[in-house]
Amino acid sequence: MARVSQEHLDARRRQILDGATRCFSRNGFHATSMQDVLREVDLSAGAVYRYFSGKEELIAAIVTEVLDTVREAFEDAARQSPPEPPDVLIGQVMERVLGEAFVRGVPGSSQFPRMMVQVWTETLRNESLSVLIRDGFERVRGAWVEVVEAYQAAGLMRADIPAEHVARTMIATVQGFAAQQALFGEVPVDVVQNGLRGLMSMGEQKAG
């Protein structure tokens, strides 16, 4: 029997994840069954269960990818000296995360934030997913703290405010924008960027 290449295995796993993401984005976690996923990806049960034991493992894999995308975006930013200002940086992260949705075939960027909100809700009843989210949040928070510390080291931000406090506020901005996208429909990323620029201009106006 011919051996299946790792490239083929990776592509099949990607196919399953992409199909599950589309299903969850359309109908939510609870209204989506594994049969729905099987029909979406046009594979047998045996082919899918070779990679994932069930719906919750699929959800966990998707959540991990989302968190890793955000973390990697801010780790990349932290390597800049200094990083881009917060309005630019947050816009870049949002575009990168929403861009992942388009690359993976999620129908419409507004659908991806809907799935994120569903994940947050699911963590209230699913302890294993809650642990995963907390672990992912800590890794994301660490990357954002590095960004804030880079701002402070470059003299671009007050150093007397704990970097973690600023990092949590930046995270909340992204989460809040995603929630608005999910609840009220698609909004251009430059809306939140302009809002941040307005807030950041208060000191400039006073100084002028």
Rank of each mutant, 00 (worst) to 15 (best):
H165M: 11
D135C: 04
T123K: 01
T121A: 14
A153F: 05
Q111H: 11
V140W: 11
R168M: 06
R125G: 13
G142V: 03
V119M: 09
R158L: 13
M157Q: 11
G136I: 01
S110W: 11
V131P: 00
A154Q: 05
A150C: 07
F137W: 08
P162Q: 04
W144Q: 13
L129F: 13
A154M: 06
A153V: 05
S109G: 06
E138D: 15
R125A: 15
D160V: 02
W120R: 15
D135T: 14
R139K: 15
V147K: 00
P107N: 07
A163L: 08
A159Q: 12
H165N: 12
G105V: 10
T169K: 00
A163E: 02
M157Y: 12
L132M: 02
D160T: 06
P107D: 08
L129R: 05
V119A: 10
V147N: 07
N126H: 14
E127M: 01
M115V: 01
V131I: 12
A154K: 06
S130Q: 01
V140I: 12
E164K: 03
A154H: 11
V103I: 14
R168N: 06
A154R: 07
T121G: 13
A153P: 01
A153D: 09
F137D: 06
I161H: 02
A159L: 00
Q118P: 00
G155W: 09
A143C: 07
S110K: 04
A163P: 04
A143I: 11
Q111F: 10
L132T: 07
V148F: 09
Q118M: 10
T123N: 01
L129D: 03
Q152K: 06
G155A: 08
A167H: 09
E122C: 12
L124D: 05
W144M: 15
T123R: 02
